[in-house]
């Protein structure tokens, strides 16, 4: 067994880990912006800068939403994406185009469109939470299975609806759905950045109470935390953040799982004030680093979400296998 560290020693180690993560992230960001620039620097920096900004927004949204979701559901395996949140978002958009027509959807103020989508997601989150994560402890395998079923149901419904859509309208839909970091709309990016910043700031005040909520409902109530209220707010934040991330780049199912668990592992704590920045830095690192490798080594011939899901999927399976021993 390794030597037992005291509290202050652990704190020093945490600080150092976070610092190293920060430096690494800066290095990758700098590399992403500057490696292999041919032609106009101004143009390259502008293009890459925008992509990087999109990645940072998505990284923070995914990291924060996953950590919060895992805290209020008291587990380390399920994420909003695994429970089907992001695919529901895709379904909402598809149904929107089907019912209202592409012209209506694309000419609607993106803020209004986004608000409607978020409201549906919040409803889904509330129903999911009340029916599944209520008082009784559920077997995590049942929940994973349910997530898989929900996810594939949403995907199938999306497919069904998109078959019914007029081919021309379908093209518009694809533009909406298959966004990637290379084609992020500037207006959407600004809106997303503001939303993520606001939500993250709002969440910051909840952090000490979230630390207690992570101990389980009964313990949290016993310690005087208004459990229901904190959970409601956290789920609200999760719904907005998942919507932002999915709207920007589409589903990256396992990114959140990867960074949330890695952050807890590296920092050796579950305290949100540490885990949230750690997970966000790791997410930027994964996205920017992955995109760098993708662009330089594979010449854009692969998709970043495929890579992230490959690594994240392995971590997910490893966590599932290890879980019974906890």
């Amino acid at each position: 067994m390794t030597a037992v560290l005291t509290g202050p020693q652990r704190a020093t180690r945490r600080r150092r880990t976070l610092l190293v993560l920060g430096v690494l992230t800066l290095a990758v960001v700098a590399a992403y912006l500057t490696v292999d620039v041919t032609g106009s620097w101004g143009y390259a920096l502008q293009q890459r800068g925008r992509r990087l900004a999109a990645m940072a927004v998505v990284a923070v949204a995914v990291a924060v939403s996953t950590v919060l979701f895992q805290t209020v559901t008291n587990n380390r395996i399920l994420t909003p994406e695994i429970m089907g949140f992001d695919r529901l978002f895709v379904l909402i958009q598809t149904v929107g185009v089907f019912v209202l027509g592409a012209a209506t959807v694309t000419t609607t103020d993106p803020r209004l469109r986004f608000a409607v989508e978020v409201v549906v997601l919040i409803g889904f989150g509330a129903v999911l939470y009340r029916s599944l994560f209520g008082r009784t402890e559920r077997d995590v395998y049942v929940l994973v299975l349910l997530g898989v079923v929900l996810g594939s149901t949403f995907t199938s419904l999306t497919l069904l609806v998109s078959r019914l859509i007029d081919p021309n309208e379908f093209l518009t839909l694809q533009d909406l759905l298959f966004a990637s970091f290379t084609s992020v709309d500037r207006q959407m990016l600004a809106l997303s950045a503001v939303l993520v910043a606001l939500v993250t700031l709002g969440v910051w005040r909840l952090l000490p109470r979230l630390d207690v909520v992570a101990l389980g409902r009964d313990t949290a109530v016993g310690l005087g935390v208004e459990h229901r209220r904190v959970v409601d707010r956290a789920l609200l934040a999760v719904a907005v953040l998942v919507a932002v991330a999915t709207a920007l780049v589409g589903p990256i199912t396992f990114l959140g799982l990867l960074v949330a668990n890695l952050a807890r592992q590296l920092l050796g704590t579950h305290r949100h004030a540490w885990v949230l920045p750690g997970a966000a830095l790791l997410a930027v690192l994964a996205l920017a680093g992955g995109q760098l490798v993708l662009e330089q080594l594979f010449g854009f011939n692969s998709s970043l979400s495929v890579m992230v899901n490959f690594v994240g999927g392995i971590v997910f399976i490893a966590l599932l296998i290890r879980e019974p021993r906890q």
């Binding site: 389980g216 313990t219 005087g224 906890q326």
Partner: peptide
Amino acid sequence: VLRQENAMSVRLTVRELVAFGRFPHSGG
């Protein structure tokens, strides 16, 4: 209050756990 089942999904040291008892007074 302390319930019978106290399985937690987070990994804490003894001191961290006990310190949570001060939460109602310290707010964290």
